[in-house]
Nucleic acid binder design. Structure first.
Lengths: 131, 131
DNA sequence: CTCACTGCAAAACGTTTGCATTGAT
DNA sequence: ATCAATGCAAACGTTTTGCAGTGAG
């Protein structure tokens, strides 16, 4: 892939996601970018997000059956999806090594990556549940 | 939800998935069931699979951007998705408790579930890569 | 001046749904 | 006889793509 040109659309997408606090999806980003570049198309949003992910500026948060959301927080971290409101909470935790025990138990495999995702309740929804 | 009737279609779907060794998706199951019930519809496949999951006969393996696959192996286990051929390998491993450390680090959250998924190479693809 | 990027629209993809009909109980 | 389950087809939401036109370098 050739060098990327810094267009108005691309700038806007980057800014919007960096400013976003909600781990937004393409549709939300589209609405926001339209406030600045009214004629932007969803296709461009997708293509730009794909490029920004490839370049390492964004991390995609994928979940089956749901739209991909994007995280501008490049710090290594995990996510908890709130089962109450759908919010995604960033988690900074040190987990034990999960690769080695599996690799040792299954030497005939090549174990390369693990993905860990949490579900539960965000502070607001947890507080709302009790008193 | 009312009691389930045991129709030809439902029997066929259950049999096909139980016999399958590939963690098949709805489309694959559809093709197989059609060999026995030629007029079955994809909608019925989906509705039946949904019911079988609800009743606990099947476990869905979901991955963003890919079709849901189904596992008749009800034993608690993890999966490794082969990055070479897409095969899913069952893993029987005891992982350390991943819930407690996060719950303790984030008492304001309610941490309910963790999902762990591995990526790597199945034995065949690993062997093919080397000599 | 080039060709990467764009807008637009159509289509792809897995999945769900509405509805009239069928068939298990 | 009942009404859960079916076949069919249309629709869904997300994402991708083809193509002619635009604009950043």
């Amino acid at each position: 892939m050739a060098l990327k040109r810094l267009t108005r659309q691309r700038k806007a997408v980057l800014e919007v996601v960096k400013r976003a606090h909600n781990h937004p999806d393409a549709a939300w980003i589209y609405q926001e970018v339209r406030k600045v570049v009214p004629k932007v198309s969803l296709g461009t949003i997708y293509r730009t997000l794909e490029a920004l992910v490839e370049e390492g500026y964004l991390i995609p948060i994928t979940k089956a059956g749901e739209a991909t959301r994007y995280d501008a927080n490049l710090h290594p971290h995990l996510h908890l999806v709130c089962q109450g409101c759908g919010a995604i909470v960033d988690l900074e935790v040190d987990l034990p090594d999960l690769l080695t025990p599996v690799q040792e138990a299954y030497p005939q495999l090549e174990v390369r990556e693990v993905e860990v995702a949490y579900k539960g309740l965000c502070p607001t929804c947890k507080a709302a549940l009790k008193g």
